[in-house]
Simulated assay, not measured.
Amino acid sequence: MNEHSRKQAPGAGGLSLHSTLIDHAAIQAAVQPWIEMECFQLSRGKRLGQLDCLDLGNTRIVREYQHATVQKIGATPGNLCTLSFCTLDRDLRFSEHDAGDADTVFFLSENSEFDIHVPAGVQTTYISLDQDEFLSAARVLNPAQWETAPQGVQPLRSNHKALFSDAVEIWFKTASVAARQGGAMDADVMRRLLLQTMLQVATTTIPDDAGTVPAAARVRALRICRQACAFAEDRLEADDLPTIVDLCTAVGVSERTLQYAFRSYVGMSPLVYLRLLRLNRVRTTLIEASPGEMTVTEAAMRYGFLHLSRFARDYRHAFDESPSETLAA
């Protein structure tokens, strides 16, 4: 279901460079196994985007470009943190935070849950690091800021965001040229240089008089929707289709409050979100099934699509292919 190419620089000591064209949300999660993650497609498109990854052992540079809107829900493992930046887009959401401004980068700590809404047309870039190593050096450079490690997602306004962007381009270009020409590269040297660059980005920040605490309404919307989505996921796992009444009851809010929360959370109504969630489930089922094991009708009805012609129309609109094409691939 995906096109995948890998370039390897000989003698690189574990360094690898690969680029993946993403045509299913599960692939976007699967090619990043170092972070527990589940992805959902939320806008139309057969192809979700492209992911480029430069793997330096325990440090990775990942660049993702979205052709279709995607939601990424997951958690970082122990002793892995990330620094990231993204295309400025008013509809992007990194947990309870928006994309910030031209100086914003994001720190995500170890053992932290995240919920990211990435609109079509947005590019996100992150670098995963050994958190113990990163924090040990950051505390030396800026003890006032880093003595106590931030928890969860922390937006930082950096004087050196451009340095971050330039470093990513340089590292990808260098690795690509080496792979193409067969030159040897020392992954450990590249990793140490990249760490020093990221320390400069993260420890030289711009004071923010307004503070970094998000608006209370946005935090509440995130909490409401995360509870509602977890409830919906549990019901779908049990082959029981959740309704809006079920969601309101489970979370303890009115339908109007739920509507406002989902508009802030993913830019759509809870009803549309639930339908897309079920369509994603059907697509995953069809991809994982052999044609003799499952029919399109069985998969559709399992997730509550009883009007099969409308289901087929909505499925094609979401994924730019028919359900039978997905099953046969």
Rank of each mutant, 00 (worst) to 15 (best):
R192S: 11
E110V: 15
A238S: 14
V219P: 00
L241C: 13
Y315W: 02
A179G: 03
W146R: 08
H307P: 04
V62K: 10
E169H: 06
T203L: 02
F134E: 01
L306D: 12
L83S: 02
G292K: 06
Q145S: 14
L306T: 09
L56H: 02
L163I: 05
M37A: 09
K46R: 15
N2A: 15
C86V: 11
Q145K: 11
Q227L: 13
F164M: 06
G304S: 01
V105F: 01
E169C: 02
A179K: 00
E96I: 13
A230R: 11
V272F: 10
R157P: 10
D234F: 09
A216I: 11
L48C: 00
T257K: 09
G13M: 02
F106C: 03
G304Y: 03
R263L: 13
L193F: 11
P270V: 06
F319K: 00
E321W: 00
Q28G: 10
F85A: 10
N58G: 14
D239P: 05
Q145V: 12
N111L: 12
E288C: 12
G182W: 03
V177R: 09
K72S: 14
G211D: 04
G152H: 00
L258R: 03
C225D: 08
T87Y: 01
E233H: 14
P33N: 04
D101K: 03
Q227D: 13
G78R: 13
T148Q: 13
E38Y: 06
S84R: 08
M185A: 12
D91M: 09
D188L: 13
E255P: 03
D246I: 04
L271K: 15
Q8I: 14
D186H: 08
L195E: 03
D209C: 03
S165C: 05
E293I: 02
N280P: 01
D209Y: 07
R60E: 11
Y265W: 14
L135R: 02
P155E: 09
G211L: 11
S5A: 14
A29N: 01
V266A: 15
R63G: 11
R281K: 14
Q196N: 13
I206R: 07
Y273H: 15
D130S: 04
T243C: 06
A261Y: 07
Y273G: 06
Y126F: 12
R226C: 06
W171R: 09
M1Y: 00
A184V: 12
P207M: 08
W34P: 04
H24N: 12
Q131L: 07
C81M: 15
A179F: 01
L108I: 12
V31N: 00
I170L: 09
V168Y: 01
T148E: 12
A328W: 10
R90W: 11
L156A: 04
V296A: 03
A137L: 13
D314R: 12
Q151V: 15
M301Q: 10
A29C: 10
V118H: 05
M301H: 13
R192C: 10
A75N: 06
E255I: 04
L279I: 01
R90F: 10
